[in-house]
């Protein structure tokens, strides 16, 4: 039981992206809003790299809610793995 918080924490994170992220606000965030209002939004439209899952939407899935949930689950798991991995490496060295 002592380590159950790890599973619970990860489980809550996955529930949030699975069921809530499709309903998140799609309005621009603070910085985007100001970029739009102050007329410099177009400066940020180019990209140096093309990411595999741009804008948290899994490519090739028609239902945008499902595509967002899938992107979220993938991102949550990979972030968990990277955090755990870096922690483990730091401990071992």
């Amino acid at each position: 039981m002592k380590k159950s918080w790890i599973i619970i924490g990860l489980f809550i994170s996955l529930l949030l992206v699975l069921f809530i992220s499709p309903f998140a606000s799609s309005s621009p965030d603070g910085l985007e809003r100001i970029a739009e209002d102050k007329g410099f939004l177009e400066k940020g439209e180019g990209h140096i790299i093309t990411s595999p899952i741009p804008d948290y939407v899994w490519p090739g899935i028609e239902d945008e809610g499902v595509a967002t949930s899938m992107a979220g689950v993938f991102g949550t798991l990979i972030t968990f793995g990277l955090g755990l991995g870096i922690g483990s490496i730091l401990k071992r060295r």
């Binding site: 380590k3 918080w5 790890i6 924490g9 990860l10 809550i12 994170s13 996955l14 949030l16 992206v17 992220s21 979220g72 991102g75 949550t76 798991l77 972030t79 968990f80 793995g81 990277l82 955090g83 755990l84 991995g85 870096i86 922690g87 483990s88 730091l90 401990k91």
Partner: peptide, 13 residues
Amino acid sequence: IPLMGVAAAFIFA
């Protein structure tokens, strides 16, 4: 160590 993973995952989510 696991807390780094859970915190990163939760904040991402």
